[in-house]
Write a protein that binds this DNA or RNA. Sequence first.
RNA 1: GCCCCCGUAGCUCAGCGGACAGAGCAGGCGCCUUCUAAGCGCUUGGUCGCAGGUUCGAUUCCUGCCGGGGGCACCA
Length: 547
Amino acid sequence: MTPDDLVDAIKAAVAASLADGALAGTMPDEVMVERPRNPEHGDYATNVAMRLAKAAGRPPRDVAAIIAERLRQVDGIASVDVAGPGFINVSLAAASLGETARIVVRAGEAYGGNGNLVGETVNLEYVSANPTGPVHIAHARWAAVGDALSRLISASGAKVTREYYFNDAGSQIDRFAASLLAAARGEEPPADGYQGEYVADVAADVVQAHPGLLEAGADEALATFRHDGVELMFDRIKQTLHRFGVDFDVYFNERDLHASGAVDRAVERLRAAGHVFEADGAVWLRTTDFGDDKDRVIVRSNGQPTYFGADLAYYIDKRNRGADRVIILLGPDHHGYFGRMRGLVAGLGENPDDSLEIIIGQLVSLRGGRMSKRAGNLVTLDELMDVIGVDAGRYSLVRWAMDSPIDLDLDLWASRTQDNPVFYVQYAHARLSSLARNAAALGIERSADPDLGLLAHPRETALLGALAEFPRVVAGAAELRAPHRVARYLEELAGLYHRFYDACRVLPLADEPGASVTDARLWLCEATRIVLANGLGMLGVGAPDRM
RNA sequence: GCCCCCGUAGCUCAGCGGACAGAGCAGGCGCCUUCUAAGCGCUUGGUCGCAGGUUCGAUUCCUGCCGGGGGCACCA
């Protein structure tokens, strides 16, 4: 019996009690079961009686007693108790809980998925670092989180487009080109320019591809640096992210929006809707009509559009490509973007609550020193991977709630000890793989019809209960846009496995025949291995067979 | 001044309205002739920043303070 099956059984018990007049009221909108922290409270607990009590006009414990009586008749339920203020605590029969192992093994790689978002098309944009410098660790957080989120939302049945937006049309590109030219000439970068080794590297690559470039006129040289320099940065960024295991379905260039006239059309659409006015020689959007704290310029007095026009055109483009929901992950310095973008979308006549979701996460810092892109001594994603590797890099960035600033301790994440959470989880998987190899070497195979009711040791039932939770963890993490929940769950699961391993011998000792309990435990072990592998896979972290 | 995020054990953090608030680390004491000791067990440690409100029930939701971080461009 899965948690979802239990929910159905509880609903049926409530419905029957309502139908025959034992209870007054109506079915609650949502019936929840959760695993109690205290094992004495059974395998599952529900608060449904407390929710029903008011409408039923009876004390919660009385309501609970009525529902509990019906639940006791359900196959697979061993005992039902009413406890505390009105909780109904349910314990499953060992065989019913043990079936979880079979369910997991049969589903294999598909275990953990759900159909909650079937039919929905999501456009998920993240990283979108400007092509004026390498990917640094603040971007890396969105690479890790965004990629994990895309996997979780996919696992919930939605169609996801993973998208990267290159801001290759703004004034920062002019500064970048000027910085490249200065570097090529061996001069100091201009004020507000970019510095760092990569600037000289890229400049040298451009010069190598265009001999005589420095003898050309400054305008021509700048144009070349601008074009080729940006292309080279695109390549470097994609290469770094690919090494990190992060690839996108669409790399979108801002300049295409300008070149195609999409920006002008977007502005015209707003003008037609009556939200545009002119002042001080510039064109403004009245975003205050939609809750923004001040109106925004969309076309500067010099005729150049601001990034708002491009952002709006980009949003329209995503919607036209079929996205029901546009999700954008951004750093904390962009939180002002939220109100403006909502204003823009509302100006189109759409409800931003339905189609736009902007997720603001906090900073990543390293040994107290905050990353600053212009400072020149940035810590890049490549350097992070060099020091702690891809798996630890991804895991360390995805393990925290997005609202929490991260202070990465590189020494910890580079270590191969139990303090390092990624190694703790991966080690559990490696141990399980080793166990499977040893079983095979002994000629022991899982039978087709295990007696899973033998999995009755407290550490076995705790492990089974956690395995049964996995699909709900995945669904919840996807819904709440919180991949860290999967990481925390895996750490918990790894701990439960290590404790099981410590207490329950799986393989027979020498001269002992393989017993049916060995068979059942091999099913449990394989189920655990599958969940660890699937969970790590959703975070984009490897599940090694040996360590 | 306005806006966003945070405040939970010595440290780093988890807890989408429920039972005695949890984990890891750090400190203390134990467990390897048997499946990976990169592991496990026991143990010390809390006015969930403060004050109100909503609720049968608040660490969780709302308001106001206090403290910390980050934003408020015709830069992106």
